[in-house]
């Protein structure tokens, strides 16, 4: 099969690419675009390390063919901070030790961004745990992750109120 032309907007930058139809969004990000922040864990949709936002929704990029997402808007961990200023979710993960080895962390943070925008969990730790159950942490930093999500939500709500005022 010959390569197919696609266009993707990744972290605000438009990319015109030729891709083999077998290439997953994950492999495209890592191998072609050097965006290696998105991690390949299981490559089978079971661990969540490859989580990115596609058109604002969190998905497993390992189970997405790049060609099928032609035209999509993709946000990866590299596009979350504003220059040197960390996103509140990133800052909260550091403040609460929401990781140990860090391999699952980009996926955890992208999944948290999805969770917060979905607005289903609120400040209920049990709902946060359930909402992030698609992200496995082998270091078992789950306690810190839940604390980080709670604080990040609070910070974001405060800055929303400031913006609204």
């Amino acid at each position: 099969m010959t390569s197919l032309p696609i266009t993707l907007t990744i972290n605000g930058h438009r990319h015109e690419l030729e891709v083999d139809p077998r290439v997953t969004l994950l492999d495209l990000l890592r191998e072609r675009l050097d965006l290696t922040g998105t991690k390949k864990g299981c490559d089978r949709g079971q661990c969540g390390a490859c989580t990115v936002l596609v058109d604002g929704k969190r998905i497993n990029s390992c189970l997405a063919l790049a060609v099928s997402h032609d035209g999509a808007n993709v946000l990866t961990i590299e596009g979350v901070a504003r220059g040197e200023e960390l996103h509140p979710v990133q800052a909260a993960f550091i403040a609460h030790d929401g990781f140990q080895c860090g391999f699952c962390t980009p996926g955890q943070i992208m999944s948290t961004l999805g969770l917060i925008s979905e607005g289903q969990a609120g400040d209920d730790p049990e709902r946060i745990r359930e909402g992030l159950s698609g992200n496995i942490c082998r270091c078992a930093a789950y306690g810190g992750i839940v604390e980080a999500v709670l604080e990040a939500q609070e910070q974001l709500a405060k800055s929303d109120r400031r913006t609204a005022a």
Partner: peptide, 9 residues
């Protein structure tokens, strides 16, 4: 069923 990521797709 599944995870939030999978349910989105």
């Amino acid at each position: 069923g599944a995870s939030a990521q999978l349910r989105n797709a």
